[in-house]
Amino acid sequence: MTQNFLDFEQPIAELEAKIQELRYVNHDSDVNVSDEIARLQKRSREITESIFSSLSAWQIAQVARHTMRPYTLDYITRIFTDFEELHGDRAFADDPAVVAGLARLDGRPVAVVGHQKGRDVKERLHRNYGMPRPEGYRKALRIMLLAERFRLPVLTFIDTPGAYPGIGAEERGQSEAIARNLEVMSQLRTPIISTVIGEGGSGGALAIGVGDRVIMLEYSTYSVISPEGCASILWKSSDKAEEAAEAMGITAPRLKEAGVVDEIVAEPAGGAHRDYDAVATNVKAEIVARLEELTALELQDLLTRRQQRLRAFGFFQ
């Protein structure tokens, strides 16, 4: 896999380029450079770990948006078996920015809903960069209500820049679609676990993110507005995105402190895109553990706790 290095990863990129060069030498000549390669690889790992141990909020936002970052379907194929994708909101269209369906988690049937971004240009357009329209939220709602009727837990994966700001989306009631999901999810009679795997962009993220437990990947973000959007409104300049990212507190530790996120899942050094299997294993372990807790609860108890959780959000005196 070719790595697309971010600006702040330049020292890593340079080392990796050197390693590549040496590998060519290794092929072409009798000179044994494997010791040197091993030394450089070790150095590369160290630098990666050191850079990633102290990322700023803005740098984390860039990792969360990395074009190689694993998306919902990458997790679905690694965490579940028998995934059956279901399509359409039964009213207007099927929104490819949201995937939903049934699957098995270690044999146990569950409902899965997630935002889906595209990898190449064509798929990115098809998936609308992971920005759902109202029909995406209504499809999600349909699958969640289906899950409720058949007592299947709902597992959602959040990764969107936000709901799509388009003319048609407004005509078809973007606001209502999001609001309805929030209300229905708050009372859905089955466990809900949401995992933020990349960008948790505002209402578009929350619309599938109301649950009993919220898990967040180490280098993912969750915010009320994008740092660029916040900067352009409050600082009157999108150049201040870095400051806005810091000020809003969009990273996992800050969200855990605010009680919005329960668990943080570690990513491999360099980010989830360095090792899809490793991060999917971590995510799965966390989901399985949380689901065990939730299924042990009486349904009424589960619903009361969810209601209390939502009721408690806020800081005031």
Partner: peptide, 26 residues
């Protein structure tokens, strides 16, 4: 809309108020 100065907690007021209305509806 949401009050950006309160960060993620302002986003969560959407969930909080919608959940409260769910109770009212029930």
């Amino acid at each position: 809309g949401a009050r950006m100065q309160e960060g993620i907690v302002s986003l969560m007021q959407m969930a909080k108020t919608s959940a409260a209305l769910g109770v009212l509806r029930r």
